[in-house]
Computed example of a mutant assay.
Amino acid sequence: MKIGVLALQGAVAEHIRMLEEAGATAVPVKKVEELEDLDGLVIPGGESTTISKLMHKYGFMEAIRQFGQAKKPIFGTCAGAILLANRINGQDDFHLGLMDIKVERNAFGRQKESFEVSLPIAGVASDFPAVFIRAPYIMEVAGNGEILSKYEEKIVAARQGQYLAAAFHPELTEDFRMHKYFLDMVKEYRGEKVQA
């Protein structure tokens, strides 16, 4: 199983390490053609507007939309979740617009207000160590989406079909269970059996 990590900005090496610990081959993705032989894609955190500009510049917008529409799983963390959303509070436009969620940017304060909290995440863990850094939150999950986790009544993880969004940074911990959950999604979409 080969998973790409979009390598335009953010904690790329950390995601690669976690994916490999969870059992995948992981590679940085810097060119559109590198999407072709991947089974799944991670869009890391960073600054969503900056990543979006770079995605436009290097032709990733349409390529990643096609990747998702081909039923290949995509996991967006922090800014990656904002990029996946089809609605952003206070903005008329969106970035990729693949996931039927509405997000609020920078909802948990500035960088200095970063924190870590133990979260229950459906299908993942009862005690996942979630790191929040200038994190968004998910205001609404529509369509066939499912809420996976909340913190202080705010939705911080959700799934819709082959798309997974987390407001926090699972790659900045030593816990690869969130990445393992994503790999199970990839197996499911490849038609492989997923072990319980």
Rank of each mutant, 00 (worst) to 15 (best):
Y137L: 01
R65C: 10
A79S: 08
V194K: 09
S52K: 14
E21C: 00
L8Q: 01
L148N: 11
E152S: 08
I43R: 00
E21F: 06
N86E: 12
V42L: 07
E33I: 04
H56V: 15
D127Q: 14
F132I: 09
C78G: 10
E104V: 11
K154F: 00
A158L: 03
L83R: 13
T173V: 15
K31W: 02
T77Y: 00
A142E: 14
S126L: 03
A135I: 05
D184T: 10
E152T: 13
L83T: 10
F168C: 09
L38F: 07
H95Q: 15
I82V: 12
M1L: 11
A24S: 12
A196I: 07
I121E: 00
L19N: 04
D37W: 07
S126Y: 00
S118D: 10
A13T: 10
T49L: 04
G191H: 12
M99Q: 13
R105G: 11
K154M: 01
V156C: 05
A26K: 09
F182A: 12
E113W: 05
I74A: 06
H179A: 13
S114V: 02
L6N: 11
K102L: 06
E20S: 08
G145K: 08
A63R: 15
E146T: 12
E140Y: 13
E140M: 01
M139F: 04
Q9N: 01
K187N: 01
F168L: 00
A157R: 09
V5E: 05
L84D: 14
M55Q: 15
E47M: 03
V131E: 11
G191R: 14
G143Y: 04
G45H: 03
S114L: 06
I51A: 13
L164E: 12
